[in-house]
Amino acid sequence: MPFYFFAQFHAAPGQERAVEAALRQVAAPSLAETGCRDFHVFRGSRDSARFVIHSIWTDEAAFDLHATLPHTVEFLHTVNRLVDRPPDLCRSEMIV
Results as ranks from 00 to 15, higher is better:
M1K: 02
P2I: 03
P2M: 05
F3E: 06
F3I: 06
F3H: 15
F3L: 05
Y4T: 10
Y4K: 06
F5R: 15
F6R: 13
Q8R: 14
Q8W: 03
F9I: 01
F9M: 07
H10M: 04
H10W: 01
A11P: 04
A12N: 01
A12G: 06
A12H: 00
G14L: 02
G14A: 07
G14T: 01
Q15K: 15
Q15V: 02
E16Y: 00
A18D: 12
A18M: 03
V19C: 12
A22C: 10
R24L: 09
R24Y: 02
R24D: 10
R24W: 05
Q25D: 11
Q25V: 08
V26I: 14
A28W: 05
A28P: 01
A28N: 00
A28M: 02
S30N: 08
A32S: 13
A32M: 15
E33C: 04
E33F: 04
C36G: 10
D38T: 01
D38G: 11
D38N: 09
F39M: 12
H40G: 03
H40S: 04
H40L: 06
V41C: 13
V41N: 08
F42T: 03
R43H: 09
R43M: 09
R43D: 11
S45I: 10
R46L: 09
R46S: 12
R46F: 10
R46E: 15
S48N: 00
I53D: 10
H54G: 12
S55D: 15
T58I: 08
D59R: 08
D59I: 14
A61Y: 07
A62G: 11
A62P: 09
A62Y: 12
F63C: 10
F63L: 09
D64P: 00
L65H: 13
H66C: 06
H66S: 12
H66K: 14
H66T: 08
A67H: 04
A67W: 03
T68V: 05
T68G: 01
H71Q: 06
T72S: 09
V73N: 08
V73A: 10
E74R: 15
E74G: 02
F75H: 03
H77E: 12
T78P: 00
T78D: 01
T78G: 02
T78W: 01
T78H: 02
V79Q: 05
V79L: 08
N80W: 10
R81E: 07
L82S: 02
D84A: 06
P87V: 05
P87G: 02
C90D: 00
R91F: 08
S92F: 01
E93Y: 08
E93Q: 11
M94A: 14
I95Q: 06
I95V: 14
V96I: 01
